[in-house]
């Protein structure tokens, strides 16, 4: 048993003059729900395609479940949906699943019932796929990905096209699957989705890895507090001069102070020594969204 389920090494894909994925090196640990986060066109689907054998890498290499370059044996242990799930439009949802189950060499109608129930499609299972809404297609895609109880799931934008209630259900389902010990690679451009569902995240932009780490760790350096005092001007001078404080600024009618999480409680003591008293203090955690926009340069100049 290897601890790294997916590892890419300088994985690159070039389409003519367009560099879709640029020397991407990732490690996805076993048992993690791992987010691949990036704006549209960042190369997420191309990465998924290379891992699933749909797209041939221009250079670089990868291993899947300990198998170099993936291969059919590894793919049989993986469930995946890439972009909008594509099935046979004239077949019902159930028959589509039965076909793919049969192609995998299995025949288990009870599994079909269970999966259709799990993704909330039992009531429409016998309707033709072409009559499904985009959200229902995504649900069928999830059922397809779960056929055969795979140990690794690669899910590309799995909530695309779903209504908010459907999105919440699918996110709950992904979290549950993760708790069962499955490794899940989830690509998304929805920051709150990754924030809610994933343990770890790799942020990519323009085909390049920007940063990779635990979701909590990536956010921690950005922790800030919002502060109101009896004398904000004096407090700002004190805080700016302090070594404990990384940054302090006046914003609207309050102060925003960047400080290590474990030291934030020392702020009140520091100010009270100078007879400035804190009247209000609240954590101001920078969202992953803001962080993402800052580091990918989507919010102006790229800060990499």
């Amino acid at each position: 048993m290897t601890d790294t389920v997916i590892e890419t090494r300088a994985l690159t894909k070039r389409y003519g003059r367009v560099l879709a994925v640029d020397r991407l090196s990732l490690q996805v640990p076993r048992g993690h729900v791992f987010g691949l986060l990036g704006p549209n066109g960042a190369g997420k689907t191309t990465v998924m395609g290379m891992l699933l054998g749909l797209v041939r890498p221009t250079s670089g290499s990868f291993s899947l479940l300990g198998t170099s370059g993936g291969g059919r044996d590894a793919l049989r242990r993986i469930g995946a949906i890439v972009e909008t799930p594509a099935f046979y439009p004239y077949l019902s949802g159930r028959r589509n699943l039965a076909y793919f189950q049969g192609v995998m060499g299995r025949n288990d109608p009870r599994e079909l019932d269970r999966l259709l129930e799990l993704v909330g499609l039992a009531g429409r299972a016998n309707d033709a796929f072409k009559t499904y809404s985009l959200g229902m297609k995504q649900r069928l895609g999830l059922a397809y990905a779960l056929l055969g109880d795979p140990e690794l799931l690669l899910l590309d934008e799995p909530t695309n096209g779903m209504d908010p209630a459907g999105m919440a259900e699918v996110r709950d389902l992904i979290r549950d699957l993760g708790r069962e010990g499955r490794t899940i690679l989830l690509s998304s451009h929805l920051l709150n989705e990754v924030e809610q569902v994933c343990d770890s995240v790799a942020i990519i932009a323009r085909g390049r890895l920007v940063v990779q780490g635990d979701v909590a760790e990536l956010l921690r350096p950005q922790e800030q507090v919002r502060l109101r005092t009896t004398d904000d001007a004096k407090a700002l001078t004190i805080l700016t001069a302090s070594d404990e404080v990384e940054a302090a600024s006046a914003e609207d009618d309050a102060l925003v102070v960047t400080i290590a999480h474990e030291r934030s409680s020392e702020l009140t003591a520091l100010l009270s020594k100078s007879e400035v008293y804190v009247t209000e203090i609240a954590p101001l955690q920078v969202s992953l969204e803001q962080y993402f926009l800052d580091i990918t340069g989507e919010n102006g100049e790229r800060s990499e």
């Binding site: 049989r76 469930g79 995946a80 594509a86 046979y88 995998m104």
Partner: peptide
């Protein structure tokens, strides 16, 4: 046309 080839291949069908 339907994109089903991708769905077939991703589960290890040769």
């Amino acid at each position: 046309g339907w994109g089903s080839l991708r769905t077939v291949v991703t589960r290890g069908t040769g």
